[in-house]
Design a protein around this nucleic acid. Structure first.
Lengths: 323, 323
DNA sequence: ACCGACTTCGACAACGTTGTATGGAGTGGG
DNA sequence: CCCACTCCATACAACGTTGTCGAAGTCGGT
C-alpha cells in the first residue's frame, strides 16, 4: 500500500480510503490510485485489515465429523451458502469423532479469530469453549447438543421420528422388530433408541435384548447382524435401522436372502427410492437444519448477548409401501 | 500478550518465546508465564502472528463446484486430511460453476493469504491468477485443466475410460449405443465424448447425432432423454452415461420400462452395486486424485519454483455383468 | 584477573492495514 | 474582511505478534 501511495503521489491513508470505497475522495485521486493499484498488482491484505479494525475476519468455522458423509456435506453446503450472503467463507474441519481432535480444532479456529463457530459436537464436554464465547465468539451447535455449556442449538426430533417409525411397523402387524444402532455413545442413537422403545412399550411389547443390536458401524456389520438375528429362533419380522449406513446393510442382506421382512430406516438417502426392496424411511430436511443453525449464528454475530435458544425440527415418515 | 507479560513480571518477548516453545528460557519463568496465560485465558492471535512472521497462515483454499456433490465432498475430505498432516486447515468455497463467482472467490482467498490453492476450475480463463502465483501462492488444479495458465494439474484419464466403456458395450455386440452427457461446455464431458467417439469410430460405426444427447443435467432429464431415444425408430440397445447423475436417471427409466438395454456409466457411486439393473461403471480413485493434488500443493508450498507437472490417473472398468 | 563463548532476557522496530487528530484549502454568511 | 464551517488529504499511532540486536550474567580456561 505504501508503494501504491508513492506511485500515485498520495498518502497511505488515501489509498486505504480508495480501496475501501470510503467517501470524500476527489475523483481524480481515486482514478490515480486505482491506476496504481492495477499497475502494481496490489491486493489488500485481509489479515492486516482484520487485525487492525477490531474483529471481522469474514470467516466462520464449521466443525463436523467427516465431510465425505453426505449428511455433513449438505450441512457444509448450506452453511457456505448462508455465509456467502454475509460475504463470509467457511473453514471446515473434521473431528473424526475424536473429542481430543475436536478440542484442538476448535481452539485453532478460535486462534484464527473466526467470527463464529458452527459445531456438530463429538465430545461430551465443551466447557473449554466458555472462555471463547465470553470473549465474543458465538457458537451454534447442530444435530447434537453441547456438553457442559449453555448455547444455541438446532436439533432434530429424533425421538419422535423413531416413535413414528416403530409405530408404522406395529401398524403393519409386526410384533418382533429388530433394532440396529451404531453406538449407544452417540446422542442421536440414544434418542432414536429411546423413541423406538417408547413406541414398543406403549404397544405393550416387552423389552427383548435379542432384538437390539448395538455397535453396527457400517453396512457390512449391519448385514451380519441381520443374518444372525434371522438365523436365531423366533426371528424378527421387521427391522428398524437407526441410520442410513445401517439401512443399506439391512436391505442388502434381506435382498440377498429374498426375505420379506419389512424395513424402516432412519435418515433418507439419495437413492433410497431405487432400493430393490420396499423401504420406508424417517426423513428430515438436512438443509433446513443447517440453514437454521447458520442463520442463527449470523444473527448472533450481528447482535450478541441474546439468550441461547434451542430449536427442534420435525421429521416425517416417507412410506414407500410394497411394490 | 502485554497483559500476560505484566502479570508474570516478564517482558513481552519472553511471553512470545514461551508460547512458541522457543528455547533459552528459564524453567521458572516458563512456569510463571504459563500460569499467567492460564489465569488470563490468553489465546495467541494467529492473524497477528501470520502477519508479522512473513507468510504462513496454515490455511489452504479449496475451490470446487458444490460441496454437497459426493465427488467434491470426497476431494474436500482428502484435502483436509493431507492438510491436517501439515497443521493446516481448509477454506472450502463453492463456485457453483459460475466463472465470475470463481474469480471473486479465488481473489478473496488470495486476499486472506492462504498458503496455497486447490482448484477444480469452472471458468475458461485463469490468467488472472498469474499475478498471485508469481507473488508466491502455489496453485494446483484438479479434475480439469486451467485456462490460460501453466500450472500443476492432476487429471483423470477421461478419454481412455470412455473408450473402455464403449468398447465393453461393443464387445457385448451392441451396435447402437446412446450417449448422454451433461454439457459439452465442460472439459470432462468433452474428453469423455471424445473417447467414446474414438471407440465407435475404431469399430467402423458412423457418427449418428440421434444417439448423442447433450444438456442432460439431472436424473429426470436423463430419464426423459432415454424415453425419447427408446421411442424413436431404430432405438439404441445400450446406453453410455457420461456421469453418475445421468446414470441414475438412465437406470431408473430402463427399470421402469423393464427394458433389457445395457448400461455403462462413467463415475462409480456409493450404491451402484445395489441398483436394480446390471450396471457396469467406469470407476476411478477420487481419493487418489485429491491426495496427489494436495500432496503436490504442499510440496510446492515447501519448495517453490519447480516446473509445473501434469499427472493423469487411470480409470478402470468395473464389470457388473448380468444378474 | 582477564578473555571469549554461551545463555538468558528485554527494548525496539516492523508486518500491512485502519482510526484519530490535525492542517490547509475552499465556501458562504454576517 | 473575518469567522465558522465543510471538504479533502496527511501524519501518526495502533492492532497483536515476532525478528533483530544488544545488555547482562555465567562459566571455564588461561
Amino acid at each position: 500500500m505504501v508503494d501504491v501511495a508513492r506511485h500515485a503521489g498520495v498518502s497511505l491513508k488515501t489509498v486505504s480510503r480508495v480501496v475501501n470505497k470510503a467517501p470524500n475522495v476527489q475523483q481524480e485521486l481515486v482514478d490515480r490510485v486505482l491506476a496504481a493499484v492495477d499497475e502494481l498488482g496490489f491486493r489488500r491484505n485481509q489479515l492486516a485489515s482484520a487485525l487492525r479494525s477490531g474483529q471481522q475476519t469474514s470467516t466462520v468455522g464449521l466443525l463436523i465429523e467427516e465431510i465425505a458423509n453426505p449428511f455433513y456435506a449438505t450441512i457444509a453446503q448450506v452453511a457456505a451458502e448462508v455465509a456467502a450472503g454475509f460475504d463470509s467463507l467457511l473453514i471446515t474441519a473434521s473431528s473424526e469423532e475424536d473429542p481430543v481432535r475436536e478440542e484442538r480444532l476448535l481452539r485453532d479456529l478460535c486462534a484464527r479469530r473466526v467470527d463464529g463457530l458452527l459445531v456438530v459436537p463429538a465430545g461430551y464436554d465443551h466447557s473449554f469453549l466458555r472462555a471463547e464465547v465470553e470473549q465474543g465468539i458465538p457458537v451454534v451447535f447442530l444435530d447434537r447438543p453441547a456438553g457442559g455449556l449453555v448455547a444455541d442449538t438446532v436439533l432434530l426430533d429424533n425421538r419422535g421420528g423413531a416413535r413414528a417409525g416403530v409405530e408404522h411397523l406395529l401398524g403393519e402387524g409386526h410384533r418382533r422388530i429388530g433394532v440396529l444402532l451404531d453406538s449407544i455413545g452417540v446422542y442421536t442413537m440414544r434418542e432414536r433408541l429411546g423413541g423406538a422403545q417408547e413406541a414398543l412399550g406403549a404397544a405393550g411389547l416387552p423389552y427383548d435384548s435379542h432384538l437390539v443390536c448395538d455397535g453396527v458401524r457400517d453396512p457390512v456389520t449391519a448385514a451380519q447382524a441381520v443374518a444372525q438375528m434371522l438365523d436365531a429362533p423366533d426371528p424378527p419380522t421387521a427391522f428398524f435401522a437407526l441410520n442410513n449406513r445401517i439401512t443399506v446393510g439391512v436391505v442388502q442382506e434381506l435382498w440377498h436372502r429374498n426375505s420379506t421382512a419389512s424395513v424402516v430406516g432412519f435418515d433418507d438417502f439419495e437413492l433410497s427410492h431405487l432400493m430393490p426392496l420396499p423401504l420406508t424411511v424417517i426423513a428430515y430436511d438436512t438443509r433446513e437444519l443447517a440453514r437454521q443453525a447458520a442463520e442463527l449464528l449470523f444473527a448472533r454475530i450481528a447482535k450478541q448477548n441474546l439468550w441461547p435458544r434451542t430449536v427442534v425440527l420435525p421429521t416425517r415418515l416417507v412410506n414407500r409401501g410394497l411394490r
